[in-house]
Amino acid sequence: VELTAASWVGPSHPTIRAGYNFYFPAVAEATGGAVTFKLISGGALMSGKETLTGLGDGIADASVLALTYNPAQLPASQLVSELAMLSGESLAVAAAVTEFTLLECAPCIAEFSEQNVVYTGSYATAPYALISKDKIESPADLEGKRVRTPGGAWDRWVAESGGTVVHTSSSEMYEAIDKGIIDVAMQPGAALKSFSLWDVADHITLADLGVYNSGPFLAFNKDAWSELSVENRRVLLDQLPEALVATTEAYLSMNDEALSETADHGVTVTEKPESLQTWVTEFNDQDLSAVIEKAESVYGIDGAEALVQAYSETLQKWTDRLDSGMSRDDLVSAMKTEIFDRIDAAAYGI
């Protein structure tokens, strides 16, 4: 079978360049050509906002998702986006979100199923940073500043820091900084290069501001998924750990590349200023209760506290293992044996 995969981002995006360009051929080879993919990228089929329902309706057989577009349909699953500031270790986050959603969050899987969609794992971006014209090294430097955020936890953090939250599309950031419409853009350092922000910004502050963790890498339409043979579904699952890690690594290497060129573009790097680090930790401690309350009152999730607890523990587990020197290949095989092998290809998503 040829599956139609859709994505609203362009072909140079890490999910496609490092993710699909590895995953699709790998699946085709492992299934002996029984399962192939046709990718329609750049939003030709569905915009980001339309993708969840469109995927459920079978406009495409598989697609990348962004949970932040659909809180009403995926309240429990998008809980992790509210916890995005907990960790800036991209690989640990990717593994933790994947394990949490697949194995520890029954309501998450039920939500996806309700949308006629099958979840199969998440990537994570590089750590977010503060890109600005003025130097930011303490919480006081954020006071009164207009900050462009990606939403969720970051909105609360900026508000708590005394700044004003601005939501603009990422393509407008360059002009917004240039014209002083925003003072600070929260983005991974890679944005200095990919959006040319280093032409208009003079400073970047690196701190533990978290990563974007709400991107299911390749979710499937449930009918298309169940029409595949059990063996083929097994292959699709088996190839995922490598793809998730490769995508996340692509984000990291883009980030490193941009940061290594900052000096040539007159951008000063401020690394983990202490008062800012302390403030992030403080914020995270007090924010957990806000997240749980919002989850229960706005999103109507039962047992939000237990879910938050479970995610935090899983995140801690993967963080500890990577900190103690787990290699990339060990990470891939650990994700395979501990997460994907525990999924029953005959039953999951049917």
Binding site: M46, S47, T53, G54, D57, G58, I59
Partner: peptide, 17 residues
Amino acid sequence: LVGERATWGVLRSIPHG
């Protein structure tokens, strides 16, 4: 080209979206 599923999917999502 694609079948009934995708046709109704497009009709449900695209016009309003």
